[in-house]
């Protein structure tokens, strides 16, 4: 019974699929945007590869770029102010850094909303109180939170770096429907070519205490390195622990193999 019934059921599925094959057009609808979209450019960082380390000076510069430029519109919700200690700041410096922020609070006497100086235990305060406020201030576009941005986009850091440095005039042959509308900016690394964010960086915008270069590319690279850290602060530790575990297990596997051969030595199999 099973086999004849199975045969009929199978035949049903196969005929339904054959009909589907016959009726599905073989060509894709052309997507004009594809032709103009560019692959993200590779940004080499010290946190890449199997033996990564943090370039703390670079991360500190990236933090400065975030604070002076990006933080005007973009939040960094998941990162605590205390976390910047990992970028090589002392406890005192972290406290001073935290004091430089005003975080939402309530007035202890009246209960009215108020602000107070930041503490290391606070998270980076968001530039807008809520999504509606953020959209209202940005032409109805929502600036995404940046804590996880290098993990939340295909091509990660390469994409972020390419986007920051990729603003340009639209090519002459760009079809009309792909031209940036009012308030949008052409960037071939963005999925649909036009995004609401204006070019955020200009040459010389941020002055670094260590005199490092501050052209758009350098600043974009620094802030991208910083955002790799915010997305995965345990990355370097993770790789180190990984190597220890890997080496330990390699030795274990060799011993286990020898033990296995030893136990089976008198048995053909």
């Amino acid at each position: 019974m099973v086999r004849p019934l199975g045969f009929l059921v199978g035949l049903g599925f196969i005929v339904a699929l054959l009909c589907a094959i016959v009726t599905t057009p073989l060509s894709n609808e052309p997507q004009a945007a594809h032709a103009f979209h560019k692959e993200a450019r590779h940004l080499p960082l010290s946190s890449d590869g199997l033996f990564p380390h943090w370039d703390k000076a670079k991360l500190q510069r990236g933090l400065q770029v975030y604070k002076e430029v990006c933080s005007a519109c973009h939040s960094l919700d998941h990162v605590a102010l205390r976390d910047v200690a990992e970028l090589g700041y002392t406890e005192g410096q972290v406290k001073t850094f935290a004091k430089g922020f005003q975080v939402p609070s309530i007035n202890p006497d009246t209960g009215e909303p108020a602000t107070r100086d930041g503490l290391p235990s606070d998270h980076f305060p968001a530039p807008y109180a809520n999504e509606v406020a953020a959209r209202a201030a940005n032409n109805n576009a929502l600036p995404p939170d940046l804590s996880l941005i290098t993990k939340a986009r295909e091509d990660g850091k390469d994409y972020v770096y390419s986007l920051l440095t990729g603003f340009q005039n639209p090519p002459a042959n760009l079809p009309k429907e792909l031209q940036p509308a009012t308030g949008l900016h052409y960037n071939p690394y963005f999925a649909n070519l036009n995004l609401a964010m204006a070019p955020p960086l200009t040459d010389g915008q941020v002055t670094f205490a260590d005199g490092s270069p501050n052209d758009v590319k350098a600043m974009a690279s620094d802030v991208t390195a910083f955002l790799v850290w915010t997305a995965e602060p345990k990355l370097v530790q993770r790789m180190r622990v990984g190597w220890a575990a890997f080496l330990f297990l390699s030795i274990f596997s060799i011993l286990a193999y020898l033990s296995y051969r030893n136990i089976w030595a008198d048995k053909e199999h």
Binding site: R238, V241, W243, A245, L249, F252, A256, S259, N262
Partner: peptide
């Protein structure tokens, strides 16, 4: 014994992925 060796290889792949 044979499963112990298999477990070692399994964990090597697992650790490589996880870390």
């Amino acid at each position: 014994a044979k499963d112990g060796f298999g477990l070692g290889i399994f964990l090597l792949v697992f650790v490589a992925l996880t870390f």
